[in-house]
């Protein structure tokens, strides 16, 4: 599959990555290699195989609906770079 520089830019933007021109070119080639490698799978006939939903064959892991004590707010906010009035503070976002 052909990967274009535009695809790399689009994906980088979705992942909020700032790439230099050099990195973009390098990643274009690398991404193309990776996809070609995975493309090998298409050579297999998988028409009778259902898509993998989970890599481990287990199902139905549930917990009972019981409310327990939450963490102290100080602990929850302990790692936040910025807080105010008991809240996490982030750069102003308005859509």
């Amino acid at each position: 599959m052909k990967v274009t520089k535009e695809t790399i830019e689009h994906v980088a933007n979705l992942a909020r990555l700032n790439l230099t021109e050099q990195e973009k070119e390098k990643l274009t080639t690398e991404m193309e290699d990776i996809i070609s490698y995975v493309d090998k799978l298409n050579e297999l006939d998988t028409s009778g195989v259902s898509p993998t939903a989970h890599v481990i064959p287990i199902k139905n892991v549930f917990r009972e609906d019981e409310a327990k004590a939450s963490y102290d707010r100080e602990k929850i906010l302990a790692n936040a770079p910025s807080t105010e009035n008991g809240c996490f503070k982030v750069p102003k976002v308005v859509e």
């Binding site: 019981e66 409310a67 327990k68 939450s70 963490y71 929850i76 906010l77």
Partner: peptide, 17 residues
Amino acid sequence: CSCTTEFGGEENTHCCP
């Protein structure tokens, strides 16, 4: 997780990792 779903409450007091 087992944090409460109760409405309101002081900010960030119904939270866990």
